[in-house]
Amino acid sequence: MKHLLSGISLLFFVTFCIAAQSDDFDIKDIEGKKLSVNLNTRLLGTENETVWHMESTNLTISGEAVKVKLKGENLVLIANITPYLNPDNTIFLVAKGEIFLSDSDDSEEVKYYTTLQSLPVEDGEKVIFFPLGMAYDSNSNFYSIEMEIQVLSAEYGDGQANKE
């Protein structure tokens, strides 16, 4: 009987040790991965001038996308901006774009485009995403969209979010 009690005590002790190891979760693990994604979405006119723009800031963590839905007259654009924080505090930025586009109001045809772009960036560095492509020709007679993306890590500080 003494041996049985000793065995049960040993089992209980080992179980307690294992359970104690699995309960060391700390929310600070997440705090270190906190990222701020600043977006400046701009609509460019036929002369590449900024016709309209909108700024926004979203908080996320490494590997979690900021999901943006942009509605236009004849299109719906869905952009997923996913920053991955590297151990050396550089950022690997992935931009996924999906476009549902109709040529005209009376057209029943809907075109679908998708793209996946990536770029390694520094903390606070600005990049520009052109989901509809780039308008190289200044005389081109069409509008375009550009999304300026800036990813700031928690260590970079909120006070420098507006750094140019």
Binding site: G72, T115, M134, I145
Partner: peptide, 8 residues
């Protein structure tokens, strides 16, 4: 709006 080439 229209698509003006490859996304970048």
């Amino acid at each position: 709006l229209s698509v003006n080439g490859e996304p970048q």
